[in-house]
Nucleic acid binder design. Structure first.
Lengths: 193, 193
DNA sequence: GCTAACATGTTAGCGAATAACATCTTAGGG
DNA sequence: CCCTAAGATGTTATTCGCTAACATGTTAGC
């Protein structure tokens, strides 16, 4: 019936740790902040920290966009050409959260780009997202034998998306992310001959 | 006149460390090998190791392809469309070393893909290569204001190259890398609408 | 041969991450 | 209602990557 209490407390503790960590990272920098400091600020021991986040990087990298992306792509008609399909899916997804989360996204992205350790892990995560994209595009047929064309398409789409996000954060959000994403994907479809 | 002795010894020590490290990595795995073990196998102290390689990862990641790539791209006529230009440059460069280094490249790539820490750093390095590509493509004008189209093109080309290399290593070199690269770039130019 | 530059080793220490063990709390059956 | 099993947390110790400080030895050029 109810580990409801357990579950809720777990969620709360997790959020407490994450918020303490982000505040410290933003105030003093990622490398300058120690796990012990985060734990203390959150009122837990450093072991509890690692029970909730396997590594220091995960506090920042933890997001659940991947399932959302997969969902959005499958929702688009398979008749659209692949790149267009991915572009539409992402544009649609961004529209859902951008207005509400713009500032948080920008802050988080800037933080992500500020520390080499975080950037490295970010790319590593991208590789996972790419596999997801490949599966979504070729219809989840065989996990191993994805055709080269699909792999390249997925990689290129992700490259476009990342370029847009990076540009957005680098110029401190002066432009609007949806517009940049549109620009990047358009470039992908037109500029590549 | 001559720190020739110094310089030569430095090069030799560096190579000794690197060879010891690679052998240990291949025999026992990257994560299972300790810097202390590498140092001992190379007959130096762990401090000497870090004087030659800033991190454990650098022993594997150390390569000097970047300047070569830049050179090769600039050597191609600027009249070629960007993607074609990059493809030609890389195809040309690969042809120079592939026959001689095939096995070493394959081994190294497999190692690179085997450990998460190495993969992460590999992506991080790619970001540097991408900036280089951007400069080479837009003529090294302004370092900050690279147009979006160029950024996307550079990112997409690198994505294609990486896809080819990854595929090559994943199927244990059964296919030939130059053919895979050609296939990937062709997909980039045709499949993307 | 003497001195300055450089390469190396020794030791100590920090921080991330893991393991072993103890403690305390809540859940749920008897 | 109590008692036990499961789960969450804390304490301590240890490993490993990495840095700093200092000492030592070795080569180069006067």
């Amino acid at each position: 019936m109810a580990d409801d209490w357990r579950a809720r407390k777990r969620v709360r503790t997790r959020r407490t740790i994450q918020e303490a960590a982000l505040r410290l990272f933003l105030d003093h920098g990622y490398d300058q902040t120690t796990v012990a400091q985060i734990a203390e600020a959150a009122g837990v021991s450093h072991m509890t920290f690692f029970r909730y986040f396997p590594t220091k990087e995960d506090v920042v990298l933890d997001d659940d966009y991947d399932p959302m992306i997969e969902e959005l792509i499958r929702a688009r008609p398979a008749t659209e050409p692949p790149v267009q399909r991915v572009q539409n899916a992402i544009a649609h997804g961004i529209a859902l959260v951008y207005a509400a989360d713009r500032e948080a996204m920008l802050t988080r992205t800037r933080l992500l780009l500020s520390a080499p350790a975080l950037r490295a892990r970010m790319w590593e995560n991208q590789a996972v997202t790419q596999q997801l994209l490949e599966r979504a595009l070729c219809g989840a047929d065989d996990p191993a034998r994805v055709p080269m064309a699909t792999r390249v398409t997925a990689a290129a789409c992700l490259a476009a998306l990342t370029t847009a996000i990076t540009t957005w954060a680098e110029e401190d959000g002066r432009a609007e992310l949806p517009a940049l994403i549109d620009e990047a994907f358009t470039a992908l479809r037109t500029e590549l001959r």
